[in-house]
Amino acid sequence: MRMLLKVQMDTPTSNEAIKQGTLPKIMEAAMEELRPEAAYFGAEDGCRTAYIFFDLADPSQLPKFSEPFFLQLGAKVSYRPVMNREDLAKGLAAIMPGS
């Protein structure tokens, strides 16, 4: 299932990760593990925030994906199922009269 993983990093903790040079390593390790379709970075609610779109093959993977962000960045982590354009078209076609 295609998911949006939102990671809001704690500012003091991520500041320290930047000073220590570990933030790029943490993010690179996450990208290798998640193999995202896309990843975007910005600020939300005054926090460094990552928006990572990836395929979740099994819900049991959630701790493996979440814990590095919790433990290393003091992050708030949330997941949301999402669709791309083709998924939306398929879903709408399934509810159209006469389908």
Score class of each variant (00 low, 15 high):
79 Y>E: 09
60 S>I: 13
96 M>K: 12
58 D>N: 14
96 M>E: 12
86 E>W: 04
10 D>I: 09
82 V>H: 01
48 R>T: 09
11 T>P: 09
6 K>R: 13
87 D>Q: 03
25 K>G: 10
66 S>F: 09
92 L>K: 02
64 K>S: 14
42 G>T: 01
1 M>R: 11
59 P>Y: 11
83 M>Y: 12
81 P>N: 11
73 L>K: 08
18 I>W: 05
91 G>E: 08
28 E>D: 14
1 M>Y: 05
54 F>S: 00
73 L>N: 13
54 F>P: 01
37 E>N: 09
13 T>V: 14
45 D>I: 01
76 K>M: 15
69 F>K: 03
20 Q>R: 11
57 A>E: 15
36 P>V: 07
69 F>E: 05
41 F>P: 02
31 M>V: 09
61 Q>L: 10
98 G>R: 04
46 G>K: 04
47 C>I: 00
50 A>R: 07
75 A>R: 01
26 I>V: 13
42 G>S: 03
5 L>K: 08
48 R>Q: 09
63 P>E: 13
94 A>G: 13
27 M>Q: 14
77 V>R: 08
52 I>V: 15
35 R>Y: 00
20 Q>H: 05
40 Y>G: 08
26 I>D: 08
16 E>T: 08
38 A>F: 02
42 G>Y: 02
36 P>D: 07
45 D>P: 00
44 E>L: 13
80 R>D: 09
16 E>I: 01
43 A>D: 10
23 L>S: 03
31 M>D: 06
98 G>P: 03
85 R>S: 11
28 E>H: 12
65 F>T: 06
31 M>W: 02
67 E>D: 11
53 F>C: 08
